[in-house]
Simulated scan of single mutants.
Amino acid sequence: MLFTRPTDEVLYDALVARDPAYDGFAYVCVTSTRIFCRLSCPARKPKPENCIFQDNVAACLEAGYRPCKRCRPLLKYKDQDPTVSALLDALEKEPARRWREDDLKAAGYDLSTVRRAFKRQFGMSFLEMARLRRIGQAAELLSEGGRVIDAQLDAGFESGSGFRAAINALIGEAPAGLRGKTLLKADWIETPLGPMMAIVDDHALHLLEFADRPALPNEIRRLKETSRMAIASGRTAVTEMLAAALDRYFSGENSGFDVRIAGHGTAFERDVWAALQAIPAGETTSYSELAGRIGRHSAVRAVARANGANRIAILIPCHRVLGADGSLTGYGGGLWRKRWLIEHERRMAGSRETSATR
């Protein structure tokens, strides 16, 4: 599982080489244009720092990216289902249209056939794909300070209540509440251990978790509640700084992080998290030792709960805590990742010691 996914460097090399072997295996989302492409796209290549690689079309659309008009990543090169081709052409001509089942019936399509064809190729229905295109455009307009009614009409919603419900589902807040309001920005960062979700503002990191962590949806919900801020797809300078720091970390060049972390949690939790950050890379501790570090020797269970409440993976290194007997204990990102991180940091520490003695 660890080595099945190519690194961003490998995927970027494939993008520059226009390697058709990666078509359908990965897609590149370009942050500067908000467009996603095949890796074999003939268009001018973006800078590495402007590239986010996704496994499938659904992930690209859900992140708010539009399909490239040159390489047309929604279409297969061969044996394209004529129903899929025709509907994708229609969607490309009218991306803001609010498609309904009645529209498909009126055009002579069988609903179950359309649903199966799109699910098989994209993992989502045609109506779901059309909805993501509309909402992504509307959310972008709102975040730029546009009027609610303009965004509503651009998204193709005749009903104001229907539009508000759709935006609520995407970013958790009514459109009127977005006007003039700073949003938290969420985006994916690819790592050798799988994609991580990073949620930031213009100044600090609020959440960093592996995408397949079971508790991630609840953590996002709690973040919305505690911060009282909406979350939209996007990146800030903090995201770029974090991505660069993680790249150095995973390459073994640097185990330190200079990314500012937002001040969430109780005073006790922040004490525990600060103690975690004070553990040198390459070393581990136990819950009881961690409790001793903050002068709360009898609060071992509370320390364990605070450790589990941490939602900044790697930077606040809860993976460095082991059981009293030295065994691996629970880790939200999976025990295999915990073992990998500990071994990786031990190698980094060993490499630094070797270099220092030369």
Rank of each mutant, 00 (worst) to 15 (best):
A237N: 09
F268K: 06
R235T: 15
A274H: 13
A245V: 00
P317M: 11
A324T: 07
W273S: 05
I316S: 12
D271S: 15
N307I: 12
G295V: 04
S233P: 03
L315G: 13
I312P: 08
F268T: 01
E283L: 07
S227V: 04
G256N: 13
V238Y: 01
D247E: 15
A274R: 11
R301Q: 14
N310I: 07
A274V: 04
G292P: 00
A237K: 09
G252D: 01
A302F: 03
R305Q: 13
D258V: 09
I294Y: 07
D325C: 05
F250M: 00
A309W: 08
D247K: 15
Q277T: 11
R296N: 03
V259S: 07
A324N: 05
R305F: 11
G295C: 02
N307D: 14
M241N: 12
A304Q: 12
N310T: 12
L246I: 00
Q277P: 05
A291L: 02
A306I: 02
F257I: 03
N254R: 10
S298I: 13
V238M: 01
H264K: 10
A313D: 15
V300M: 01
S288G: 06
A313C: 11
T226N: 15
I261V: 15
L276Q: 10
G308F: 08
T266S: 15
E253N: 09
R311N: 10
T284R: 10
I312L: 12
E269C: 02
F268V: 01
V238G: 04
I261N: 00
D247A: 13
A267D: 14
D325I: 03
T266Q: 08
V259E: 05
G265I: 02
G295M: 09
V321C: 02
A313H: 13
S251Q: 13
A262S: 07
M241F: 03
L290H: 07
A306K: 02
W273P: 04
I316V: 15
A244K: 09
V321H: 04
G292V: 08
L322Y: 09
R248C: 11
I314K: 06
C318K: 13
T285S: 08
L276G: 02
S255F: 06
L242D: 01
I231C: 05
Q277M: 12
R270P: 00
